[in-house]
Amino acid sequence: MSALTHQHDAPQPEDQSLAIAIGIRGVSMVYTTRGERLNALTNITLDIAEGEFVSLIGPSGCGKSTLLRVIADLLQPSTGRVEVHGKSADVARRERNYGMVFQSPVLYDWRTVERNVQLPLEIMKVSKRERAERCAELLELVGLQDFAKRYPWQLSGGMQQRVAIARALSFRPSILLMDEPFGALDEMTRERLNLELLSIWSRTGTTVVFVTHSIPEAVFLSDRIVVMTPRPGRIEHIVEVDLPRPRGAEIREDERFFRLIAEVRSRLYEH
C-alpha cells in the first residue's frame, strides 16, 4: 500500500500475531450547519495495533481531531463504527479504556497537581492509599514529584501538560488519545516532551493515537503516520516510520529522519 522501500520493524496490523486495539470501520462524519452539508470525514478505515504509536497528520479541517473524538466516543460518526478490543467505542469508554490529553492541559485550578492527577481515580472509586501510590509513581514518571502540592497556575505550560499526561495515565488506560498535546508549547519544550513521551510509552505499552500538525514530531514519535487531507476528510496515505527504537534526540540528525520528513511533506502537498 506504500511506495516505501524501507525495512521496518514497527508493528503491523496486517500481521495476524498482533491484536488490533482500535478498528475504524468505514467511518464518515457529516455536519449540517445552516443548511450546508460538511463532510468532515469520509469512509475512514484503519486498524491500529496494540501498543502501536500512530500519528494523524494533516492541515486544519482535515478531520484529524474529529476522528480522534470519534475513537474516544466523544462524537458519534454519521456512518461506520469504531471497535476497541472488539467492543464498541461506547463500551470502551465506559470501561475506561481512554486516557485523553488535549492541546490545553485542562487542569482544575482548585486542585493541586497531585489532586488533579488523582481526579480520575477518585471518580473511579480507587482507594485513597492506592491513589496516593499511583500519583507518586506518575509524578515521578513525568518528573514532577517536587511539584505535587503546587497549583496548576504556578507551573509553566510544559509542566502543566506533563501533569495532564500523568492524569491521563493515572487509571492505566489501554489507549492514550492525544490531540495536539504539545501544539501550544515552544519548540525546545516540545522536543523534550517528545522524548519523555516516548520513554513513557515504551514503559507503559499503551496504544497511542497522536494528532499533530508538526511533521518532525510525527516522524520522531510514530510507528505509522496517517496523512489526512481535507474536503472531504479522508486518509491520503500511510507512511511507515522505520526508524529504530529506542529513539533518542540524535535521531533528529539522522539522514533517514530527514528522508521521512520529506516523504510526509510530499504526501501532504501532493493533494
Binding site: A72, L74, I123
Partner: peptide, 18 residues
C-alpha cells in the same frame, strides 16, 4: 466550565452527579 473539561469527565465515564 470549559467544554474540554466536560469531555474529560465524559472520557472518565463520570456520571452527572460527579
Amino acid at each position: 466550565v470549559d467544554p474540554l473539561s466536560l469531555q474529560l469527565m465524559r472520557s472518565y465515564a463520570a456520571n452527572g452527579w460527579e
